[in-house]
């Protein structure tokens, strides 16, 4: 496996990247496996080596809770960053969409490693920040698009009265 395709290890020197990878373990997950549940304690960070993971939120549809796709994560991407950010609770549910392999990193092992090697910690947490920021920006834009439709709909409903 090359570690250059992993978002988490961008701009990290190859030796340092290998040292970070050595902190994790590889886990094979069949399609449909729930990697973590909404609200569960977030003690592990995941990086997808191969496969695809659905991130969902429950939404009430016709009186039933249904898992609604919020985001898809693919090979090379990081998920479960709540492990590094208080209050360390998952805010989405993660389910493998196809057979998937992930690297699993314990929070304590990562933070100890970063404390001993601040430059690596700085680079890795910068990459995590990029992932968090990207989600924020995407959802800002999606929220605004939905707000626009709500206003259009409200105006249309008002004119129909």
């Amino acid at each position: 496996m090359s570690d250059t395709h992993l978002d988490l290890l961008k701009s990290v020197a190859p030796d340092d990247a290998r040292a970070v990878l050595a902190l994790g373990s590889r886990r094979a997950l069949p399609s449909g496996t729930v990697l973590f549940e909404l609200g569960a304690p977030a003690d592990h960070l995941y990086v997808i080596d191969r496969g695809r993971v659905n991130l969902t939120l429950p939404m009430q549809v016709f009186g039933h809770d249904e898992d609604i796709l919020v985001e898809e994560r693919v090979s090379g991407q990081t998920l479960g960053w709540s492990a590094l950010i208080p209050p360390h609770r998952f805010t989405l549910k993660a389910t493998t969409q196809i057979d998937t392999e992930v690297f699993v990193f314990g929070r304590a092992a990562l933070l100890d490693h970063f404390a001993a090697r601040p430059a690596v910690g700085y680079a890795v947490l910068g990459n995590v920040s990029a992932t968090v920021g990207q989600r924020l920006q995407v959802f800002q834009a999606m929220w605004l698009r939905e707000m626009k439709r709500v206003l259009q709909f409200s105006r249309g409903a008002g004119e129909a009265k």
């Binding site: 939404m59 009430q60 549809v61 016709f62 039933h64 249904e66 609604i68 939905e146 439709r149 709909f153």
Partner: peptide
């Protein structure tokens, strides 16, 4: 449904008796 991604949109309301599976695929 509760409005998050969905739906104040007319098309959604104009389709009576859409099966849940179809609706979920449309939302996806």
């Amino acid at each position: 449904p509760e409005r998050f991604f969905a739906d104040p949109h007319r098309a959604f309301h104009q389709q009576p008796n859409v099966p849940l599976e179809v609706l979920l695929l449309q939302i996806e």
